[in-house]
Lab assay of single mutants.
Amino acid sequence: MEVRTIKVFTTVDNINLHTQVVDMSMTYGQQFGPTYLDGADVTKIKPHNSHEGKTFYVLPNDDTLRVEAFEYYHTTDPSFLGRYMSALNHTKKWKYPQVNGLTSIKWADNNCYLATALLTLQQIELKFNPPALQDAYYRARAGEAANFCALILAYCNKTVGELGDVRETMSYLFQHANLDSCKRVLNVVCKTCGQQQTTLKGVEAVMYMGTLSYEQFKKGVQIPCTCGKQATKYLVQQESPFVMMSAPPAQYELKHGTFTCASEYTGNYQCGHYKHITSKETLYCIDGALLTKSSEYKGPITDVFYKENSYTTTIK
């Protein structure tokens, strides 16, 4: 009895394709271990004539594949690729409408935090270190965002349907971005203890939790000093293409032309909904596939993004 075979390709990165001759009487799992086709788990399936010449994702289970996976995804987590594939199996079914010149995501599976993050990423200057993220990001900007969303979920250790947080998501993504040249110098002034300067680099240099107003941050924000008295913390120097200011959701007025974009969060910790506000020729609110415009805006804002380049204080 002759062994019926077909020729397929296996890959971990969709760049390096490895030619395989597979036995049609055995499952993919018996031949390769966990195997995925377009995100779908085909591990328990036997090869079919229609699979001839198709590319299958496999887990990096030998040295060659491990090197290829690390170079593309910059992670050695053995569960990463499987999590990416199972997320992709959902995100490829989502709709990605162009809204006001940006790629958004039609609401499904509690994905409003991903839509808000995706919209924000198209408006701030950011370059990702893992080629996987950078490639998928370019495709997302062009309207094909399924891979990018699935990668975000995998890097953030999230599953489809789980509630997510924009600030946490951005923080994970910033860790995989090139923020080497970003720098922030802060000064804390206390009447009792004097003053202390701190220099922050990388992710810490672009994120701040405690106030939404970048102007206020430049002037000074009140913080408790270690001595128990009130101290003032203010920005001395900022070198970065953008800054992200966050605070627990509270009524906040966004003035046209003073910011790049913002995240609105309605609801409580267990259950809520994100919308995205962007400042173009007027203010726009993007909620999944829905767009509304207004000249002014007041609502429960939790993150505001500002364009920056270089700032030095005039406070002496």
Rank of each mutant, 00 (worst) to 15 (best):
P97M: 07
H51M: 10
H74D: 07
Q134G: 07
T211H: 07
I315E: 14
M244C: 06
G82M: 10
K7H: 14
C261T: 01
L119D: 04
N16E: 08
P97S: 07
K233S: 10
E68W: 00
E281N: 06
N100I: 07
K127M: 14
L65N: 14
K316F: 08
T27E: 15
T159I: 09
R4H: 08
Y72T: 09
T76F: 13
Q238G: 00
L235C: 06
R66N: 15
T91I: 04
V203H: 10
Q123T: 05
N268Q: 11
Y96P: 01
V206K: 01
A150R: 02
K255A: 10
K44Q: 15
S25A: 12
Q196V: 11
V21P: 11
K106Q: 06
A205V: 01
T211N: 13
Y57N: 12
F56M: 13
L133A: 03
L151T: 03
L291D: 06
F56G: 04
C193P: 03
V206L: 06
Y137L: 12
K316T: 15
N309G: 12
G82Y: 06
N147T: 12
D287S: 02
P34C: 12
A250V: 11
L179K: 06
T10C: 13
Q222E: 12
F56Q: 05
Q122G: 03
L37S: 13
T226I: 15
Q237M: 10
L291C: 08
D13F: 05
N14I: 10
A145R: 03
Y311L: 08
I152N: 02
Q237D: 06
C149M: 12
K46A: 13
T116N: 11
I277H: 04
D23M: 13
K201C: 13
N61F: 15
P300Q: 14
L212R: 02
E281I: 04
Y208W: 07
T312R: 14
T159D: 11
S246K: 01
P47W: 04
G194A: 04
T103M: 06
A231H: 01
Y138F: 10
P130K: 03
L173H: 00
L151A: 03
H74M: 08
G272D: 00
N309E: 05
P249K: 00
K218S: 05
N49A: 11
I315Q: 06
F148E: 01
Q196R: 14
H276F: 08
D62K: 14
A154W: 03
F70K: 14
P130W: 02
F259G: 02
Q20F: 11
A117C: 09
N178Q: 15
R66F: 14
K316H: 15
H176L: 13
D109Y: 04
Q251F: 14
C156K: 05
C261D: 00
G143V: 04
D77C: 13
K307T: 07
I45M: 13
R4K: 14
R184E: 03
K127H: 11
P131A: 05
L88A: 05
Q30H: 15
Y84Q: 04
G267C: 05
C227Q: 01
Y269R: 15
A146F: 06
A262P: 00
F217W: 05
Q31R: 12
H48E: 15
E71F: 07
K233M: 13
T116R: 01
A154D: 01
L290C: 15
A205M: 00
Q195H: 15
P130I: 06
Q251H: 09
P78S: 12
L126A: 05
V99M: 11
Y155V: 04
E308C: 10
H273T: 00
E204F: 07
Y155T: 02
F70E: 09
P300H: 10
Y138Q: 10
S310T: 08
D135K: 10
G53Y: 12
V188M: 08
Y265V: 04
G202S: 06
C182R: 04
S25N: 11
C182M: 05
P249D: 00
V206A: 03
Q31A: 10
L151M: 09
L102M: 15
E239S: 11
V67N: 14
K93A: 09
S79N: 06
L81G: 07
L235H: 01
G82T: 13
H74V: 04
T232Y: 09
E215M: 06
H90V: 14
Y155N: 02
Y252P: 00
Y208V: 09
I301M: 04
Q20C: 13
N14P: 06
T55N: 08
T43V: 08
V21K: 14
N14D: 15
N187C: 12
Q123W: 04
L200G: 02
T211L: 11
S86A: 11
T19M: 13
Y214R: 01
H90K: 15
N187T: 10
L37I: 14
N14Q: 15
F174P: 02
T232N: 09
Y234Q: 08
P130D: 03
I223F: 13
L212K: 04
G53W: 11
D180C: 07
N147A: 12
L118I: 09
E296T: 07
D13V: 04
A115E: 02
Y265F: 12
G164S: 05
C190D: 02
Y274T: 00
L290G: 11
P224N: 12
L102V: 05
T266A: 13
T278I: 07
